[in-house]
Design a binder for these strands. Sequence first.
DNA 1: CAACCGTAGATTGTCGACAATCGACTTCCC
DNA 2: GGGAAGTCGATTGTCGACAATCTACGGTTG
Lengths: 222, 222
Amino acid sequence: MLPAAGEFKSEPLRLRIAAVLRDAILDGDLRPGTPLTETALAEQLAVSRAPVREAIRILAKEGLIDTKPYRGSLVREVTRRDVEEVYGLRRLHESFAVERIVQRHATADLDRLAEVCTRMRGHAEQGDMRAVSVEDDRFHRVLIELADHELLLTIWIQLSHRVRQIMSLRNLQIEDPNRVVANHVAIVDALRAKDLASALARVARHVEEGSELVVEGWIDAP
Amino acid sequence: MLPAAGEFKSEPLRLRIAAVLRDAILDGDLRPGTPLTETALAEQLAVSRAPVREAIRILAKEGLIDTKPYRGSLVREVTRRDVEEVYGLRRLHESFAVERIVQRHATADLDRLAEVCTRMRGHAEQGDMRAVSVEDDRFHRVLIELADHELLLTIWIQLSHRVRQIMSLRNLQIEDPNRVVANHVAIVDALRAKDLASALARVARHVEEGSELVVEGWIDAP
DNA sequence: CAACCGTAGATTGTCGACAATCGACTTCCC
DNA sequence: GGGAAGTCGATTGTCGACAATCTACGGTTG
């Protein structure tokens, strides 16, 4: 098997740098408040300031970094309000996706969701919580994709980044994996049955649960 | 009266350039398909390529410009699908805002909306359709602001840009100004009465009308 | 001692030059 | 005449240097 095209013709530097920084932020390696100075990063990464600068701009647009003119950038603080807003919009957009899926009779594509569920169940049975949450992410990503709405997808991607960051900052996996699997299966079932009301309710409930789990006891930085 | 602070300490160049280009695109002066080369723009604006480059990146993130690595940028084409997607999300987000406004008992702030309506009515009576649509924009912007949701607002701003571009590309003002005013007043009334169902229906209807008016007869570039 | 001014250090903002890449055109060979 | 390799112009990608700006600190003055 030949390597993917992306391996040879490397992406522009700024995108690779942005990806590195993004992962570091989203995984909590760069905690909120950490200053990001162009010069220092450029030196560390052994590149010039130009691509670093552009990477920072990209992440700023994604809401991961705060930048003040002539003063520098730092990893954005995540307040309780941010968490509530992110989850609120997440619920809104997932509901929208569900509506469209039911309307568009995309029942055939639902197999993609079902596949994710079975993989998730496998990991759950083996107690691999890490893998479960990866499939969890994928599930919701696929759900949005099935809505067949480009603009929705781009907004969703931003939101999902924020969600990932929030989860890493509050690294608790106290959820019951079997329950998580059951929740997702229930959503697929409702979609298969084209039961819009039920699907909406289950999605809303699911997001709500996650939100409560995270918001509860969230402490804002002073 | 002293000049505003912004007059003295000028914003970073990239932002001013981005603003200029954005206005040009949104007003239809730069039509979709127009190539934007960094060198040419830099020369025209008598600046270096760096800030021009950043401005282009900003607009690319906003979905106004398409960029291909090493190939250049051009004003993004707007397809019928784009129009449908933009209006679909616009409706979604305005509905969300209405829900929050009713929930949060923000009835006092509704005066801000009422003010916009009266200004709009004034312009309508004088037949100044241009001014009416400016107030129209402001109305929906204020509506979103009243939802008191920062993330929603940032997404909305992007959406409103796209809406503005779409309107300029299809410069028809065949709407009856008095009808437009009445629609907005009706929304405020429903909000005042805390009649969520009615407010949602009226907003949805309003957006739908605008959408139909624009989508109808939209021709995609080949 | 307090308030103010000015300066120093750090950081971003802007610039011009060079390198890398892409797509189209040309040319060469069959 | 057709196909493929090579080349060329245009454009972006990257770089290092210099300028502009901000804040904090320290000195000065009443």
